[in-house]
Design a binder for these strands. Sequence first.
DNA 1: ACCTGAACACCGTTCAAGT
DNA 2: ACCTGAACACCGTTCAAGT
Lengths: 198, 198
Amino acid sequence: MPTPARTSVEEIVAAGTRILDEVGLAGLTMQAVAAHVGVRSPSLYKRVRDRDELLHHIATATARELGERLDDATVAASATGSSEGAEPAERLVRLAHALRAFAHARPERYRLLFTPPANTLGPAPEALTDAVRALLETTTRLVGPEDSLSAARTVTAWATGFISMEFTGAFRLGGDVEEAYTYGISRLAAALAGPPAT
Amino acid sequence: MPTPARTSVEEIVAAGTRILDEVGLAGLTMQAVAAHVGVRSPSLYKRVRDRDELLHHIATATARELGERLDDATVAASATGSSEGAEPAERLVRLAHALRAFAHARPERYRLLFTPPANTLGPAPEALTDAVRALLETTTRLVGPEDSLSAARTVTAWATGFISMEFTGAFRLGGDVEEAYTYGISRLAAALAGPPAT
DNA sequence: ACCTGAACACCGTTCAAGT
DNA sequence: ACCTGAACACCGTTCAAGT
């Protein structure tokens, strides 16, 4: 005799996301998620294959949300600048700051996205590609379509490396971290827009 | 009546390191370590406070080993170049490649060092500082003592970000990763050595 | 068709009891 | 002084049994 479903994948992913934000990856247990959606943990396995698939869903949802934040940042850049939208270098700085702001606001989800544990699958590739679309548009304006991908990768590598160093405490000794970040991204934008390397 | 010690912290850390390399962080259990050193898991707690402290010791030992590899890389650079040692930019490229080579050879330990899990303490700060001493010397030659720290941080951020993107599969689509890395570090060296940003 | 209690095979960690 | 078995409080996951 059929029984009505008492939850859904969406609800499970939403609960998992909240728990990840609030108590961290280690606290994200199947039982905690189950309690959150009003069910016993074995029931979750009707909706997700295992905990790893749940993490994958959370990562993908996070990529989507990050994408929105980055889009917002470029919109803000357009509104602020002259009639035709801000210059690419300025946009790039705003995008980098939006990425870091997201990392600080949602550190656990940020880590899941950019430095997932060894055997955990990250977000769906298309989701991450989508998330950095705004960045790719900006680097295209900055260096042209030919080099835009490698420029976007360079910026992403630098920014994510900077942020993870920040998280692990590499900047504990000295200096204004905010300033170092702003300086770094400006410098990087200039280097990318400049003449080719020798 | 006293009983002779059947193991030591050093042996435990060595066993933990081997297990981490071979079966990953999830496989690094207290019982696996205990079995490796010929003891039962409760006995480990006479030598380390808990698993987290063991990870901390492994991270510190890893930092020391990485430091040696980076030193080797600069020595190689000196031997290869003209009588007086290679130019700074060339040294920087070699250091970056040595870092990446280490990451590929020992991915689990590399991750423990640069992107440790949220509540895990990384290596002892002095150990990491020591590890990148060769890098700091090189950036000093490249940009002078004033800006050497921020230059070293910029290079480290970019390289670690690049490598973690590589690990998470961000480069799956297209391009020679090796070439992109070499291109990036050369470009970065040029940008750092160049005129200040506008 | 979904939900559950019970069970299994693990974890890290503590502790009284042995030598 | 160190080592151990037993125990505790957890995990993720499976599965037969209920509705």
